[in-house]
Write a protein that binds this DNA or RNA. Structure first.
Ligand code: MN
Ligand code: MN
Ligand code: ZN
Ligand code: ZN
Lengths: 128, 128
DNA sequence: TTTTTAATTTATACTTAGTCTAAAACTAGT
DNA sequence: ACTAGTTTTAGACTAAGTATAAATTAAAAA
């Protein structure tokens, strides 16, 4: 519960994530920083993303792709991925608590978090 | 829809997955093959795992860890991961179809598959 | 059975995403 | 200004997996 220290670099990276609406990867962040004329060391971007994640300012998403994505929406929500074009959309529908309860009961686990990735085909990919 | 060609190597790897109940990684498979006195080229294991996955004999699981895991249970089911010890258990509870329908409606996606990873603490990690 | 063709395995090089390290540059407290 | 702690930087390194090209093995043809 330490004070969050937002350095110039961390702030710039945080802003990129906040402005983005496509859940960018670390690579995307580096590219967008460069477009803004900012260029930080490779490792700094990764360190900052981890710092911001640990601080709870952003969320790291592991959607089964090669690279992690990052999300400034920290509210509880899930994601759906288009298998055709790769776009990622928000799933705001809250998951049924009785289903989660049943899982807890069946498995004996104390459920803490859910990372749900739904795969499908998005509207623009469905219509040719 | 071609005939499935199970070579010696592929069959041995398939058996490892079938015998396992812990959703082993490629690395685990290589290790268990060696314990059985079988040693195949690194790439062969990866190729075979992909072949078996594409053939539908096994499933590849991407649970947000560094390495993919493999599962001989191909029936539709989900997984729960213990954040303390890393063990992976089956979640057989079928997910509510009305929830999925709502997601399809909200997002405009045609839902094809769900890879649901639930994180929690397993029984043996909960009791000290 | 020999010859030809196709599929698979092997060894090794390469790629990608990310971490680690040690020195340099900042920052804050005295 | 001096010191200690923190952060950034450049570059080496790691882990998981893919790509390539030669060598083996299997299947098909003759
Ligand atoms: Mn999101
Ligand atoms: Mn399973
Ligand atoms: Zn699409
Ligand atoms: Zn556990």
């Amino acid at each position: 519960m330490n004070k969050i220290n937002l350095t110039t670099q961390r702030k710039a990276i945080f802003e990129i994530i906040q402005e983005a609406h496509d859940h960018p990867t670390a690579g995307d962040v580096i590219e967008r920083l460069r477009l803004k004329g900012k260029q930080y060391a490779y490792g700094t971007v990764y360190n900052s993303l981890r710092y911001l994640t640990d601080s709870g300012l952003i969320r790291e998403l592991k959607l089964g792709e090669t690279a992690s994505r990052y999300d400034a929406r920290t509210e509880d929500h899930q994601h759906i991925v288009c298998t055709q074009c790769g776009r990622v959309d928000e799933v705001m529908a809250e998951l049924p608590s009785d289903w989660l309860n049943q899982i807890a009961q069946d498995t004996g686990y104390t459920v803490h978090e859910t990372q749900i990735v739904i795969e499908g085909v998005c509207k623009s990919c469905a219509t040719p």
